[in-house]
Design a protein around this nucleic acid. Structure first.
Length: 458
RNA sequence: GGCUCGGUGGCAGAGUGGUAAUGCAGCGGAUUGCAAAUCCGUCAACGCCGGUUCGAUUCCGACCCGAGCCUCCA
């Protein structure tokens, strides 16, 4: 069996994956800050690491996948204030919507979804530990991490303190000893959400929750930590600093980071205002199309997002479902995903384009298959689909389901098809074609075959 | 300014020290009443300049272009 390999951000190299404990794989991915709807860029790590989760589950007996929910944060406080509600209302709403949206993308639920507000105690314990070990200090209600106390600070993001200080363009708060120091605990105003702590009424800094929750829920160290590229610095660098200095040990063996989703060659981001929400796009395309589009480029390369990408994804899925629909009478053989070419491709740093090529090959084989080989081909195609979270829909539904209430009903369509069939029997092709043209204008494509006529929505 | 990543056919997108996947689009054919779907065939690419090498798209260096991080962000 080929080995699982990925590109580790920490080393910049592609490395063979060697788990700490093959009987218990631990995966942690940075989840959402729940104060607004997820955009398609937020969906990329979810889909990417969902697929990694599926691959790991095929390889190892136990995989513990955790994805945190950041439910205390300045942006949440601001959103709650704007809506004149408590932060609980805001975080509840957007946590629910996030889960709904990600489920639409066929992303499996993580095994754990720790919430920051439910883990304040371990966070405070970590701060105490960091202070005790001389890596943090309290100042004016804040507690700050002292970056000069960690010799390897900057190792993950490939920078060193001198470079960062030289390039510093941000005004430095005067309570910081060193400009790179970052907040572990910050004071809250009386009317702001907060918790009592040895350093007063306040709330945790952004990076703290991941360090503390990984420790509390997954263990001393984990195998894989994933997230978007933009988290490398400062978030993951600081997380690493906190955990390594506070707890000691390895912390994370493999750091994986996905590239962005771009819009017109530019990063999609909240601040640029060029975001497309998943919810929005789900009104236009099935979730599976969005998922396929996100997988069509390798996770470490930028994905330039456009309607064309989605249309192509839709057409490709159509061709797969077409093959499945045409063989609806054939019972697929039970094929293990691990025995497929797609699996081999994914083992190599999640090479999804190569895996998709295998899907195409398998689809073609199914289209050409005779009665003897079709069951195997179909089983293989479905097995690879399962591995990637694709092709799980009913083919008939895929083509005939409509999201629009104004669309023709199946009964309407069947009625016209009967009329057309009758016209064809009379060899009145003009009348038959008129029906087809009419249906086409309504977004219905017809296909005649020896078995009869089928239709699909375009 | 510091650091990182990338530039492959018309488009999307893998990969490799020696015939450069796959898909879409195009072209030709089979099939079809005509289509559609499918199948068969086919055209077509490694930013620029040097270096290493028997051989470079792949390794090294310079250059040009693009993106990103250094500030909230997947």
């Amino acid at each position: 069996m080929a080995e699982l390999r990925f590109t580790n951000t920490l080393t910049g190299q592609k490395e063979v994956f060697e788990p700490r404990d093959p009987n218990r794989i631990t995966l942690y991915v940075c989840g959402p800050t729940v104060y607004n709807l997820a955009h398609i860029g937020n969906a990329r790590p979810v889909v990417t690491f969902d697929m990694l989760y599926r691959v790991l589950r095929a390889l190892y007996p136990t995989v513990v996948y955790a994805r945190n929910i950041t439910d205390i944060d300045d942006k949440i406080i601001a959103a709650a204030r704007e809506r004149n509600e408590g932060i609980d209302a805001v975080t509840k709403e957007f946590t629910d919507k996030y889960r709904e949206d990600m489920a639409q993308l066929n992303a499996l639920s993580p095994d754990l979804e720790p919430r920051a507000t439910e883990n304040i105690k371990p966070m405070c314990d970590l701060i105490t530990q960091l202070i005790a070990r001389g890596h943090a200090y309290a100042a004016e209600g804040h507690v700050l991490f002292d970056v000069t106390s960690m010799p390897s600070y900057g190792a993950l993001s490939g920078r060193n303190l001198e470079d960062m200080l030289a390039g510093a363009r941000v005004e430095v708060a005067d309570y910081k000893r060193s400009p790179g120091d970052f907040v572990l605990w910050k004071p809250s105003a009386e009317d702001e959400p907060g918790w009592d702590s040895p350093w007063g009424w306040g709330r945790p800094g952004w990076h703290l929750e991941c360090s503390a929750m990984i420790r509390a829920h997954l263990g001393d160290a984990i195998d894989i930590h994933g997230g978007g590229r933009d988290l490398i610095f400062p978030h993951h660098e600081n997380e690493r600093a906190q955990s390594c200095c506070g707890y000691g040990g390895d912390f994370v063996r493999y750091w994986l980071h996905n590239a962005y989703v771009d819009m017109d060659g530019e990063k999609m981001s909240k601040s640029l205002g060029n975001v497309r929400t998943v919810r929005d796009l789900l009104g236009l395309y099935p979730g599976e199309v969005l998922r396929f589009a996100l997988l069509s480029t390798h996770y470490r390369s930028p994905l330039n997002f456009s309607g064309e990408v989605l249309d192509n994804a839709k057409l490709t899925l159509n061709s797969f479902y077409q093959a499945l629909r045409n063989t609806s009478d054939i019972c697929p053989e039970d094929v293990r995903p691990e025995d497929t070419l797609a699996f081999t491709a994914l083992l190599d740093d999640l090479n999804t384009p190569k895996a998709i090529a295998a899907l195409h090959a398998s689809c073609k084989a199914l289209n050409k298959a005779d009665a003897k080989t079709a069951a195997t081909c179909k089983g293989e195609l479905l097995a690879m689909g399962r591995l990637m979270g694709l092709l799980g829909s009913d083919p008939e539904q895929w083509f005939t389901e409509s999201s629009s209430s104004a669309a023709l009903t199946p009964e309407d369509i069947e009625q016209r098809l009967a009329a057309r069939l009758e016209a064809r029997a009379r060899k009145d092709f003009a009348a038959a074609d008129a029906v087809r043209d009419e249906l086409q204008a309504a977004g219905i494509e017809l296909e005649d075959s020896p078995k009869g006529t089928t239709w699909r929505r375009s």
